[in-house]
Design a protein around this nucleic acid. Structure first.
Lengths: 192, 192
DNA sequence: CTCGATTGTCTAGCAGTGCTAGCATCTGGC
DNA sequence: GCCAGATGCTAGCACTGCTAGACAATCGAG
């Protein structure tokens, strides 16, 4: 059975290669440039191979999104953990979120702008996504304020961050005052 | 010269038809369904006619976005004007914004999600867009709080609304608690 | 009223997209 | 060493945005 195991390993390896290459290409030249042909050429296989791993382009985007969600969750936790005091943690959390979006624009798009075929706020939401939300919740529950549901508070906070992230990146907000916006948002939303 | 004038009128009329049809089709079946062929067929002209009015599909999206921006600005002003008290106006404003996004998803996408080739936060930003921001600013300047730049405050508030609008529509936030989220956001951000 | 020039519109086609049917080739188990 | 089945390929479909070039309708000059 060792041969089959090796084949399975190689197959899994190739799947990782596809996702990594798609991500690379998207970060380099944007998701528009990630065509099945270009992707196939980069991994040095023919197009149909992609379809033996994923149902279609949408699923590849979804895979990149999941990968990104895990990373984001980790970075959020790290940022929160490395700071003292509820108030400071909130700002650090917000900065980490916006920083991630800025450093990984294509991944962020895969998660929230594009259709990766992922379910949200539902039972079959992938673990990585729930965990990202949980990472926010862990820090934000302490500053939700009296009588405010922590989940609801986290949703609002997250939405605000998401708005800042997307509008900034699309050039809809002047790039300079990013830090001032974070301070303002965290200062107003969080109850210390 | 009357003949030329009539032709110009007819041409302008057809341009409006193109934009209106694109919007219609997008609201009916989503922007993916708005192909140049389908659009051409609906207006009962051939494809190249579209390109005699617009540089390409992107510009058509941009035209829909501008139309939407004007409507949004008007609705925001109406909502604010019909309410008494700074605090109430802010909530009404937020509700009107989210309501517009929900009632006109395709238009909202044209404005903020898709590339309509429009400049933002720059000198050559179209008037309609500046005016939309101005409509927000007019109400929000009263609740920015001491020592906070009204423009910056409006940016943050707008970003939060945008985040709520997009995440809600994409199914990323549970649909039920929309009103609670608006109340929370307006209550925390606005300084009365 | 006729005729050439100018508009205006259309047909047909290009290069690219996501995706798939069906054939070749390669390989593991006998 | 051979054969069956897994595996990856070539070739092609229907679609996309966009455009060149042919054609017809309209206009102004004589």
């Amino acid at each position: 059975m060792s041969v089959q195991e090796r084949k399975q390993r190689e197959r899994a390896e190739r799947e990782r290669l596809i996702v990594a290459t798609a991500r690379e290409l998207a970060e380099e030249q944007g998701w528009d440039a990630v065509t099945t042909r270009r992707l196939a050429e980069r991994i040095e296989y023919s197009q149909p191979v992609l379809y033996s791993h994923f149902r279609g382009k949408r699923e590849i985007i979804g895979a990149v999104a999941l990968e990104g969600a895990a990373e984001l969750a980790a970075e959020l936790r790290a940022a929160s953990a490395s700071t003292e005091g509820a108030r400071g943690r909130v700002t650090a959390l917000a900065r980490a979120y916006l920083d991630f979006a800025e450093r990984n624009p294509a991944v962020y798009d895969a998660m929230f702008q594009l259709d990766g075929g992922l379910a949200f706020a539902a039972e079959d939401t992938p673990e990585a996504l729930k965990d990202g939300f949980a990472a926010l919740l862990e820090t934000l529950r302490d500053v939700a304020g009296e009588g405010v549901d922590p989940g609801l508070f986290t949703e609002v906070f997250w939405a605000s961050l998401h708005g800042l992230a997307t509008l900034t990146r699309a050039g809809r907000l002047p790039a300079g005052d990013a830090e001032a916006r974070v301070e303002l948002l965290a200062g107003r939303l969080a109850v210390v």
